[in-house]
Nucleic acid binder design. Structure first.
Lengths: 337, 337
DNA sequence: ATAAATTATTGGAACGTTCCAATTAGGAAA
DNA sequence: TTTCCTAATTGGAACGTTCCAATAATTTAT
């Protein structure tokens, strides 16, 4: 709690006095109200500038019971995917005249609760949440009970009074797997991911593709691990030790794929030649992996902007029906598979 | 500007009434003042909880002229280095009970000005700034004139009334270059970077090491480009086309090194065998590059926490002398060089 | 018992805006 | 001129806290 050492702030009153008008007039000028004729407005603005007046949004927002801040809580910035989400959301919100109260939960539900409460006390006008793993379903209900506009991203939290922006994971994984099948692969692993809806959905698509081709789903080719680079590295090693050796894999996400790529490299194998690898998300770097990664594009930046837009619209029209934006996954074929 | 549709908020007054005390008492209870005996405090807290009271920090901060929010403005989150900085700063600040107003400038000075102004209006208690390229020197002076505590990170903005947290770039680059020299290399390129103090400092260290060994600085081996993965890729290609072919390089940063690694790979060359490559920063991923990157460790996470601490201390003691934290670079040798 | 000291509690004036209802000024119409 | 209408402007009461000075209740000392 820092106390600004108070060389008393210039307020609207003093501007008013300097300009020879009332504080009400100054207030109107500041919101560029059409009620004030140009010459008066100019005089006021000049006085404000001369005095070094600076607007105190806290006071204004307290009085008006409004808010220009939006809480954005993100679970894992060590994954560039989420960084792209954060950047996209921020861009759209700033563009709309809002400012972002940001928090990083490191996948801790406890921390998430803490920052959510703080944001509420701070008077955030709405919240964009990438939920941490293990977030209880009840959370959305609670936030709704605050009558706080909420959009959940990426990981759905089941039914509830919130908007959602994510990807059609099942369809994406299906497409990725189909691509490998079409190339003639029959032993296709699935790498990385430990828990959560996103994993379930992606696995579902993977299985659907396999069984759709009359292949039976082989529990053995499914190697779970943290969805990190390290997890990708390890799961790929595990996979390559299976007999007979699988010839391809779809990864939980691009970061896992990146780790998998390393494992391949360490064995002197080349993705795209000795092994076919598919990522998921299409983060910006995916195009510059070595080799460039074939993946499922869900356009993270766009997804983020859509999410922000959902929130803005919700704040505009609190009563509208529940909105869900699902990014249409698109297969992008580069060199890894 | 969203107007919460006002099912009138529960205030301290109603809690007071419910608990049969005055609002002043409630206020004291909320700050756990020792003036209030436990039984009264309990009664008040119970009433607050029962009514679903939620604290309005805006009102409190307006009255007390205090603030719990800190502005963090970051220039380029597409570089994981800055993401690590952001995360570190946020961690430390949240730990200290603050909340982060975050903004991303995309290296735009204009945007930077805009968000800085907004943060000021929002009443941020202080600012952590990773300046965008091209930030005018005068900026720190202006922020100081707001009597707003400021810590600048990474890119120094010259003399001024602000604290600074960065790295000893010259020394780091010197160490990296010396390492290559010690391994017998004599044709050592410098890749990436276009402008800015950081580049100047790193180049200075690079030159110092060369000339210290009696080698003359060869303008030709210095290949400038955006400090991005792409820039690294391109500059490495350019470098490899020089005759006679250089055998090693130090990169402006790890991301450039990553791009350089790709260029090497594309030519069938292996860093650590056919070519020695040094990065700078030691972002987390550097250890998982292929091959793992030898680099200069400036401990980004620690650097960020130090920066946050500088700010907290400055807010505590506005009058203290200017503080500068320079991360001591440490050579970490992995497999790329 | 009374005075003095301590402990609990409290009303009301800020903090810097916005908003409403009301007032004043300036023409145009009568 | 008087009347009416519109255009400009304004005072004061909020918004939900905190803080100060002051009062009320209780205990301790005399």
């Amino acid at each position: 709690m820092s106390r600004s050492n108070l060389p008393y702030a210039i307020t609207i009153r003093e501007v008013a006095e300097a300009a020879g008008v009332s504080k009400s007039t100054v207030s109107l000028v500041l919101k560029s109200s059409p009620l004030i004729p140009a010459n008066t407005a100019d005089r006021v603005r000049e006085a404000a500038h001369k005095l070094g007046y600076i607007y105190n949004s806290r006071a204004g927002e307290l009085r008006g019971r409004t808010s220009k801040t939006i809480g954005v809580v993100v679970s894992d910035l060590s994954n560039p995917f989420f960084t792209e989400i954060l950047v996209g959301v921020e861009r759209r919100l700033v563009e709309a005249g809002y400012i972002v109260l940001m928090a990083h939960t490191c996948e801790s539900v406890e921390r998430q609760n803490q920052v959510l409460r703080t944001m509420r006390e701070q008077g955030a006008a709405g919240i964009v949440l990438c939920p941490a793993y293990g977030t209880p379903r009840g959370l959305t209900q609670e936030v709704a009970s605050w009558s706080m506009p909420l959009v959940v991203m990426i990981r759905s939290l089941g039914p509830g009074k919130y908007d959602f922006a994510g990807a059609d994971n099942e369809r994406g994984a299906y497409a990725a797997t189909m691509h490998l099948l079409a190339a003639g692969h029959t032993r296709i692993g699935f790498l990385g991911g430990l828990t959560g809806v996103v994993l379930e959905q992606r696995l579902k698509g993977y299985r659907a593709a396999l069984t759709g081709r009359g292949l039976k789903f082989d529990e053995n080719l499914l190697v779970a691990a943290q969805p990190t680079r390290k997890g990708g590295f390890e799961t790929m090693n595990t996979l390559l030790d299976k007999k007979p050796q699988p010839t391809s894999a779809v990864c939980y996400n691009d970061i896992v794929a990146l780790g998998a790529l390393s494992a391949l490299g360490a064995r002197g194998m080349h993705a795209g030649q000795d092994f076919a690898l598919m990522g998921f998300d299409n983060i910006q770097d995916a195009a510059h992996f070595n080799p460039p990664l074939s993946t499922i594009d869900i356009r993270p930046g766009n997804l983020a902007e859509q999410a922000a837009t959902l929130l803005l619209n919700r704040m505009e029209t609190p009563g509208r029906t529940r909105q869900i934006f699902l990014a249409e996954p698109e297969l992008v074929i580069r060199q890894s598979g």
